[in-house]
Nucleic acid binder design. Structure first.
Lengths: 258, 258
DNA sequence: CCATCTTTGTGCACGCGTTCACAAAGGCAT
DNA sequence: ATGCCTTTGTGAACGCGTGCACAAAGATGG
């Protein structure tokens, strides 16, 4: 993660917002938006925290990093807070986004309505499959990978979404970065290497499920005894013990067409 | 990185593997599987750490929680480690999973090949739309929500995936839990409330993008001067300043059909 | 104008996670 | 065997995030 640099003297606080807080701001924003739509004028930290599923002290501390936007004895003004958080997150401006890899997942992403309402705009859909080119997905014509650089420069895209198979992810990533993209949301099950200054966030269904499985197993094993099934030979005698079915995993992002 | 859930207040810490470590095990497993397929016999912590994109000291400490599976001066036996991690994560057993909400995303998930290879098996696809019932998605017939409880009990499902609109998510969640599901992967943009003992993990594309936007904005603002656009009136005089377009967001999971 | 009540903002302590740095352990060559 | 070289496993320090608890701030009512 890039180091927090605090330019911007006096007037307002130095911009050292903790990463953990940033990750929660969208959560608050969602809860606040819901309140706003119900025309609720103000909320207490207690109420809002409950709606967002967090501790109220944590929420107050989070907000304190943004400034003192509350009123003691009353709470927070909903509309005002919505604006402040939106501004802090950079949602008051337009963010053109490209989605690369229009498989099952890419198409699903393209159809996502939550994009536009938050300042995100799908500038283009890109796929390596020439037979897809020109066909509309979610009302936007898919374009061939050849035009990737051109599209990014023309539209001033700085955020890219990778929904390709793992095999092409790094290559696509490199091209995106070379063309000027500095933030990447990666759905491919690979570790992307990027130069300094480029942010990557990863979403991986398979990992989430495995974490759930771990806890599930522990719950189940809480009563049951520990059955230490014979391991496949100790490390030294490794040999050719097990052969994991090749190619059946790890080469496509969670949610790609087979 | 998906939104992690903070649970386990250390009250029950028998098997004491740190949550942060558990979250990385799938990452290691993926890297190890790749090595295994290339028939690499052993890896050093340095190499494996590079492949998984983490610090080598962190990796060694993570593995130390599982036991001493390495050989000093040599490294780790790939096959052996794959087995140990798989067992620890509970992937050596079969995990039947149901997916509720077969929209764009649900369908994409159903098609995901990474399920089966990791011990996960799609036991059923469930949707409230009666016109979908009986139609095959990814080779499995979609079933109507009415049969939810029956399916879960018959198949012994303990993990559920929610890919419905936010409006129905809590209701679906309640039914899943009541029927015996104790782990839930939630794609709907809502905070689910569940009873003690049920794990929930959340994946939210919108949040990930907003976090990227925050960093992106900061990068851009490092050189450029701050234009403090007039805020929508201070909190006291709130007034009807800005009106976020209603209903355009927050009611469907990232990636649902419009 | 004062008293009381509500709710924010935050100082502080604690625990988890990360990282460094190194001793111990094992392999390998001689 | 012996000594060298590599790599693990971990003790300890550090920093971040969380949550408690409370004083200060402001509203509200008399």
């Amino acid at each position: 993660m890039a180091t927090g640099r605090n330019h911007r003297p006096a007037t307002t606080r130095s911009r050292g917002i903790p990463e953990a807080t940033v990750a929660r701001l969208p959560l608050y924003l969602r809860a606040l938006t819901a309140l706003s739509e119900r025309s609720v004028p103000t909320v207490s930290s207690e109420e809002l925290a409950a709606a967002a599923g967090v501790n109220s002290a944590k929420l107050r501390k989070d907000f304190s990093y943004l400034g003192s936007y509350g009123t003691r004895g009353v709470g927070y003004d909903v509309e005002y807070l919505v604006y402040q958080i939106s501004r802090e997150l950079g949602l008051t401006q337009d963010w053109p986004v490209v989605i690369v890899g229009i498989g099952n997942l890419g198409a699903a992403l393209a159809n996502y309505g939550g994009f536009a309402s938050r300042g995100f705009r799908v500038a283009a859909l890109i796929d390596a499959d020439a037979s897809l080119a020109g066909k509309p997905v979610a009302g936007i014509d898919v374009q061939h990978t050849d035009r990737l650089e051109q599209i990014i420069e023309e539209s001033g895209v700085s955020i890219g979404v990778i929904a390709t198979p793992a095999g092409s992810a790094q290559q696509v990533c490199d091209r995106l970065v070379a063309a000027g993209v500095t933030s990447i949301l990666n759905f491919a099950p690979t570790v992307l290497s990027v130069p300094e200054g480029v942010d990557v966030r990863k979403v991986d269904l398979s990992i989430e499920l495995q974490i759930l499985a771990f806890h599930e197993q522990r719950k189940a094993g809480e009563d049951a005894p520990e059955e230490d099934t014979a391991p496949p030979a100790a490390p030294p005698a490794a040999a050719v013990t097990k052969r994991p079915e090749p190619g059946s995993d790890g080469d496509r992002p969670a949610v790609m067409p087979a």
